[in-house]
Nucleic acid binder design. Structure first.
Length: 487
DNA sequence: TTTTGAGTTGTTCGA
DNA sequence: GTCGAACAACTCAAA
C-alpha cells in the first residue's frame, strides 16, 4: 500500500498552484498537510507583530479550506525537524514534500532536515512555489548574479514561465488516523493588546481574499497603474504584497491572470501599465535573487564602503521614536508612519519618502528602519524589506544615488496634491487648507488658528530643517567616500 | 582584456 | 511657471 506523504506548508499557504501539494496528491496515497510553528528555526527573522496577526488568519483560512476537502491542517509547535520526525512515526509517512524558501538560515536548516530524513529512508522533494525565476537559474554572461535590475529583468523575460496548476477537484485521500494537532489559537500569534483590531477592516487574509483582491485590481486599477500607483490617496496599487509573502497567491497566478487580460490586444504585456505592474513583480524576483546570492545583506550593506558611514547620534532614541510614531512634523512622513501603525501597510510612494527621511534627514542607520518595518508591516518580507531599505540608503544593488534626497514637502505636494492622504491619517491637520497642509509651519498664525492647530501642541514642529538636513547628509556621504579612499 | 553604454521611483538652481 | 543642466562618480553587463 502506498505510504502517506506529508506536505509541509511554509510560505505557500494556498491549495491552488501549490506544486508540493499537487505532487503529493499525485502519488496516490494519503496526504497529510502540516504546518510547524518553529520560531527558533526562523533565526533572527521570526515573524514580527503585524505579520503574526496575518499568519494567524492565513492558517485559519488554510485549515478551513482543507476541511472543505475532507482534509485537515495538522499544526505543531517547536523544532521543525523533530516535529516532522514525530509525525512520520505517528502516520507511517514515507515522504515529505515542500516548496522552497530562500533566506539563508532557512536554506541551511532545510538542507539539514533533508539529510536527516533521507538518513531515515524518508524521501524528500522540494519545489518552486514562490517565484517565477529561482535565483540559481538566472545568471549573467559571466556566470554570476545580476546586480542591476534592468538587465536582470530583460534576461528573465526571455525565459519561459510555467503555468500555474489548479488543484484537482474532489476530496483528498484520507489517512486512516489523523495525528493530533494544535489549534491555531494555541500558537498565540495575535497580539495580547488590541492594537491589531483595526487590521481586519483593511485586510482579508487567505487564498480567497487574495484571488478577490487580484480580480478587483485587474478590473479596476491595473489599467491606470502607470499614473495612479504613485498617488497614496488612491487605491491604485495591487496591495497583494502580504498575500504574496505568505504564498496565499503565487506570482505564476498573477502572471497568468495578467496575460489573460492582455489576450484581447494580442500583446503581452498589453500596455505601459501592465508592463510596469509586471516589473513590480520583477522587483520582488530581483529581491529574492539578491538575497539568495548576497545572504548577508539583511543586516549589512552590499556596498562595503557604507560599513563606515557616519550615522548621526541618537543615544536616547528620541529621533527614532518620533519617526516611528509619526511625530516628525513632516505631514507626508507622519501620515505614512501612522498608516503603517494602524493598518499594517504603507503605500509604496510613502515608504520611499519615509525611508529616505529616516536615512537622510535623521541620518539614522537603515537597519533601524528595516527592523521597525519588519515588526509593523503585514507584508514584511526579508527579501523585499532588505532591497527596499538598501535602495533607499543608497548602499544596495542599483540603489538611489546618494544625492537623491527626497524633499518631503515637494513629494507631498506632487503626489498628494489635495492633501487627502495627509488629512486621513493626521486628523489634527484636517482643517488646514491645501496650500499649507504639507508644511503647516509655514502657514500664517491666523490660518492655523482657524484650523484649530497649535504647532508644538497638537502637531509637532519639524524636528529637522529640510535644507540643513540635506546639506548635512551630502557632507556625510562625502566624508564616507574620503574615509574609504584614504586607507 | 578593455571599452562602452547605461543605470526605478529627485532636487535645486538659474535662465 | 517652466525648462534644462548639474549634481559626482561608480559599477555593472555586454560586446
Amino acid at each position: 500500500m502506498t505510504k502517506p506523504v506529508i506536505v509541509w506548508f511554509r510560505r505557500d499557504l494556498r491549495l491552488n498552484d501549490n506544486p508540493a501539494l499537487n505532487e503529493a496528491r499525485a502519488v496516490g496515497g494519503a496526504v497529510i498537510p502540516v504546518y510547524v510553528h518553529d520560531e527558533a528555526g526562523e533565526a533572527a527573522w521570526s515573524s514580527g507583530g503585524a505579520s503574526r496577526w496575518w499568519l494567524h488568519h492565513a492558517l485559519s483560512r488554510l485549515s478551513e479550506a482543507l476541511r472543505a476537502r475532507a482534509s485537515r491542517l495538522i499544526i505543531r509547535k517547536g523544532d521543525s525537524s523533530a516535529a516532522l520526525i514525530d509525525l512520520i512515526k505517528e502516520t507511517g509517512a514515507g515522504a515529505v514534500y515542500w516548496n522552497r524558501r530562500y533566506e539563508s538560515a532557512i536554506v541551511a536548516r532545510d538542507a539539514m532536515i533533508e539529510a536527516a530524513l533521507n538518513e531515515r529512508r524518508i524521501a524528500t522533494r522540494s519545489f518552486n512555489g514562490a517565484l517565477l525565476f529561482e535565483p540559481h537559474t538566472i545568471k549573467n554572461k559571466q556566470g554570476g548574479p545580476f546586480q542591476v535590475f534592468t538587465p536582470y529583468w530583460r534576461h528573465c523575460l526571455a525565459q519561459a514561465v510555467a503555468e500555474p496548476v489548479s488543484l484537482a477537484k474532489g476530496a483528498f485521500k484520507q489517512t486512516r488516523k489523523w495525528p493530533v494537532s494544535e489549534s491555531v489559537d494555541a500558537l498565540e500569534l495575535r497580539p495580547r493588546l488590541n492594537w491589531a483590531d483595526g487590521f481586519a477592516r483593511h485586510w482579508e487574509p487567505g487564498e480567497e481574499g487574495a484571488q478577490r483582491r487580484l480580480k478587483d485590481f485587474l478590473k479596476a486599477s491595473v489599467g491606470s497603474y502607470a499614473q495612479q500607483r504613485n498617488l497614496p490617496d488612491m487605491d491604485g496599487t495591487s496591495r497583494l504584497s502580504p498575500w504574496l509573502h505568505f504564498g496565499e497567491i503565487s506570482p505564476r497566478q498573477i502572471w497568468s491572470a495578467l496575460r489573460a487580460c492582455s489576450r484581447e490586444s494580442g500583446v503581452f504585456p498589453a500596455n505601459a501599465s501592465a508592463r510596469i505592474f509586471l516589473s513590480e513583480i520583477g522587483w520582488r524576483e530581483f529581491a529574492y535573487h539578491l538575497l539568495a546570492h548576497f545572504p548577508h545583506t539583511p543586516t549589512r550593506p552590499l556596498r562595503v564602503n557604507f560599513e563606515n558611514f557616519p550615522w548621526a547620534e541618537d543615544s536616547d532614541g528620541e529621533k527614532l521614536r518620533a519617526w516611528q510614531r509619526g511625530q516628525t512634523g513632516y505631514p507626508i512622513v507622519d501620515a505614512g508612519m501612522r498608516q503603517l501603525w494602524q493598518t499594517g501597510w504603507m503605500h509604496n510612494r510613502v515608504r520611499m519618502i519615509a525611508a529616505s527621511f529616516l536615512v537622510k534627514h535623521l541620518r539614522l542607520p537603515w537597519q533601524r528602519g528595516a527592523e521597525w518595518f519588519w515588526d509593523t508591516l503585514v507584508d514584511a518580507d526579508l527579501a523585499n524589506n532588505t532591497l527596499g531599505w538598501q535602495w533607499s540608503a543608497g548602499c544596495g544593488a542599483d540603489a538611489a544615488p546618494y544625492f537623491r534626497i527626497f524633499a518631503p514637502v515637494a513629494q507631498g505636494e506632487r503626489f498628494d496634491r489635495e492633501g487627502g492622504y495627509v488629512r486621513r491619517w493626521i486628523p489634527e491637520l484636517a482643517k488646514v487648507p491645501n496650500k499649507w497642509v504639507h508644511q503647516p509651519w509655514k502657514a500664517p498664525e491666523s490660518v492655523l488658528n482657524d484650523a484649530g492647530v497649535k504647532l508644538g501642541e497638537h502637531y509637532p514642529k519639524p524636528i529637522v530643517d529640510h535644507a540643513e538636513a540635506r546639506i548635512a547628509a551630502l557632507a556625510a556621504f562625502k566624508a564616507m567616500r574620503t574615509a574609504g579612499s584614504g586607507s
